[in-house]
Amino acid sequence: MKLYDYILSPSCYKVRLMAALTCVKLDIRPVDFHPGAEHRGPELMALNPAGSIPILEDADLILTESSAMLVYLAARAAPEWLGSGAAEETARVQQWLSFSNRLTASLGGARLHEMLLRPGDITALQAQGIAALRELEAGLVEQGLRGMRFLASDRPTVADIACFPYVALAPDGGVSLAPYPAIRLWSRALRSLENFIEMPGIHRLHELKPDPHIEPDGA
């Protein structure tokens, strides 16, 4: 399976992360997105007329939408990441997969503007990003009330992986995550998953130091 990849792209990272979590080996083909704009060149435009990356190629199958790639990886290697199949859970997975596009457009747009000088209305992008984060925070709080730690279920699904990268990188676009305790706990839960991999700007969880030794009270 070949992934046309850019190391700093959160959408590409979704696919790398999903592959790592489901133990699928990817053949990585690095794309000079910045400064080379190789994704707009003839070779990649022929594969994906939308001119975006990631692109996932597996024999005859060519995927250009990251959510479809997550679903494909899960269906191939670890179907439990698709959810249980119950009606409500299936709907929630789809709901958050679609919602992730709003994160890409808002927080992702703000990040490209602030980091790689791409054009855009930064005030509007940040405002839309904050609105999306509030919705996500509320969704996670409601899931918590249902006794579930993840967006669609009590276990992580493709929906969590679709939403996580742009959220975790919101500060790159000048949007703070400080006001969202449920998002921070969710991020911690995802980062502590076995086989989790990081990307620049998303740090791994550092191992906690041993517990402080407390002398028993002598009295």
């Binding site: 850019y6 190391i7 700093l8 690095p30 794309v31 000079d32 910045h34 400064p35 080379g36 190789e38 980091m115 500060p171 790159d172 620049p200 700007g201 740090h203």
Partner: peptide, 19 residues
């Protein structure tokens, strides 16, 4: 090493510093 790999290596390092 391909030019893209060289660029990505250095961008990875610098973006870890940025935050």
């Amino acid at each position: 090493t391909s030019l893209t790999d060289l660029i990505h290596f250095q961008q990875t390092i610098f973006l870890q510093d940025r935050s």
